[in-house]
Structure formats: C-alpha cells, structure tokens
Amino acid sequence: MLKDLRPALVSFVALTVLTGLVYPLAMTGIAQLVFPAQANGSLITKGDQVVGSALIGQNFAEPKYFHGRLSATTAPDPQDSTKTVSAPYNAASSGGSNLGPTSKALADRLAADVAAAKQDNPGADVPVDLVTTSGSGLDPDISPEAALFQVPRIAKARNLSETTLRALVAYSTQGRELGLFGEPRVNVLKLNLALDRLEASKPSGS
C-alpha cells in the first residue's frame, strides 16, 4: 500500500485542483461573461435599488398585492438562537413544511386557510396551490387560477376594474415550457410590479 502513496497523493491533489478550483472558477468566468444577469441571481432593480430576484418569491401580505404560495421558511429566533421562528420567504434559509399527509397541524392549517380564502372570493373554488406551502418556501409562481381567484380582493383594494386585472393576469401568464414541460404559471413579483405600474399610469380618481 505504501507504494500507492505517491500516486494517491499526486492524483488526489491534481484532481482536486482541477475539479474543485479550476472547473468552478472557469465556469464562473465564462458564465459572468456570457450570462451575467442569470449568473448574478436574475436581480430586478428599481433605480439603483434591488427589489428582488425574478426567480425568488417574496412575501406579500397586503390586500392590494397578489399573494404567492405559503412559505414555511424560518429564521433563528433573535431571543434564543437555538430556536427558530417563522420567516416566510427567507431566501437565505430555504425549506418546506415537511408536514405529512395525516398531519393534524397540516389539516388545521388547510382548514383555516381555505376558510380565510373563501372570504376573499366567496363562491369560487379555492385553488390548491394558494393554501399549500411550496417545497423551497421561495416559489416565485402561482397557478393562473390562483391569480384569478385573488382578482376581486385586489380590485376592491385598488379601485381597479376586475376586467383590467383579469387581462393583466392573462398577459402575465407563462405557458408550459416549449408547450410541454411543467405547468402554466404566473410570476407573482413580476405581476405585482406590473400592477404597481398599471396603477401609477392610471389617471387619479378614475
């Protein structure tokens, strides 16, 4: 085995440098050159301020915005660092609820959220993605149905017509990729940015 020591050490170091340093550094160099926007996180800026990433959902709680998926992400408790507290859409600590199919906590949460959602839009079926947490806690998208479901609430909060809002949702809906992969979806942050722009361009009082 001793005679293997030299080949082991040399090839270990050589392959380590190649795969652990040269490869990621070269890839970073090329990526920054060819796809700088994506390589740096697909950031969305307003003036010189970063308002988020096109790929990462953010927390929307105000009635005037479209809300995203529920998020189960947490953050360390400021009072006691051994514990965590709920911190939706914490993009520095991703994760899901991990509640199982027979979890009482999940059953109670779903029942409460379905009841709350029905107050927003009585009579309509509650879309399942609106009351479930995403796997990452950072899902940027909701289904088109989940966006349309929220239209009455936003119309009221913003004093906009439902027709206008429905058109905005339709305009913001992305189809399946290449017509086949995944599901149709609406990026919530982009939709809300478009909503803010729409209201800003609207003559006041109309």
Binding site: R69, G96, S97, N98, L99, P101, L106, L110, V114, D125, V126, P127, V128, D129, V131, T132, T133, S134, G135, S136, D139, P140, D141, I142, S143, G182, E183, R185
Partner: peptide, 13 residues
C-alpha cells in the same frame, strides 16, 4: 374541496 392533487411541498412550475 381542494382539487388538483397534493401540492403541499411542491413547486408550481
């Protein structure tokens, strides 16, 4: 009354 399958822990895309 939630249809569309088990979306808990899944991503919309």
């Amino acid at each position: 009354g939630l249809s569309g399958g088990n979306m808990e822990g899944k991503e919309v895309r």
